[in-house]
Design a protein around this nucleic acid. Structure first.
Lengths: 106, 106
DNA sequence: TATGTTTGCAACCGATTAGTTGCATATAAA
DNA sequence: TTTATATGCAACTAATCGGTTGCAAACATA
């Protein structure tokens, strides 16, 4: 499989799952109700998120509650860090000013 | 095609291209030298990045210089915002403390 | 014990992806 | 004008993806 976090968040359904379980832990069945696809398809997405360590499990009898593991999410944040320096720089802000002026001229 | 930024950054080659052109504008040929694949394959990645508005073009004779457009990168940052609130919260920090204690016990 | 519920896993399938090769176009240099 | 260089685009292909159906295992309840 060999998937990473960036591939994990590439799918819109998986991003929706992440947003849902970020609020509170949910079972696969409860999650599946939010989507127009089979429970198994949702389960498959959960499996991918688990493989990428983006979710944590909590067993309660025969039910399994899935919860977001924010630690992995921080990896995306730290990858963005290198670009944050660029878009916050004065040189880039100058670019934006020039672009705005050009647009106004049109 | 209908690709979004999240799919654009899912591919490791595209992330590498983004990192390279973030530093300074580069031509497709110059970029291709950094990868173990044909120039056309790299060009295809550039096309996807262009479609997603992650890169800007600058023509210079027969050469085309590609440069990162940080504005689109901010969209990833703003999607992360909702989770940043969670991982910065006290409740989550408490979770981490508990996890650390559990690890120490083992 | 027998039955229903929650879940995960495997097999299958059509669409998409990431690479390839080949070719056309535009510009620069001889 | 001829030739070399830089690039983009189309056609093809193997691998992967995202969905499906079917089934087995684990637990709860009658």
């Amino acid at each position: 499989m060999r998937r990473d976090i960036f591939q994990a968040i590439a799918d819109p359904t998986r991003r929706a799952i992440i947003t849902l379980i970020a609020l509170h832990a949910m079972t696969p069945n409860a999650l599946a109700e939010h989507f127009d696809m089979t429970r198994q398809a949702v389960s498959k997405h959960i499996r991918i998120l688990t493989e990428c360590q983006l979710v944590k499990q909590e067993h309660a009898g025969r039910e399994i509650y899935y919860k977001l593991d924010t630690n992995k999410m921080k990896e995306i944040d730290s990858w963005l860090e290198q670009f944050r320096k660029i878009w916050e720089s004065r040189f880039n802000q100058l670019d934006n000013v020039i672009a705005t002026i050009k647009k106004q001229k049109k």
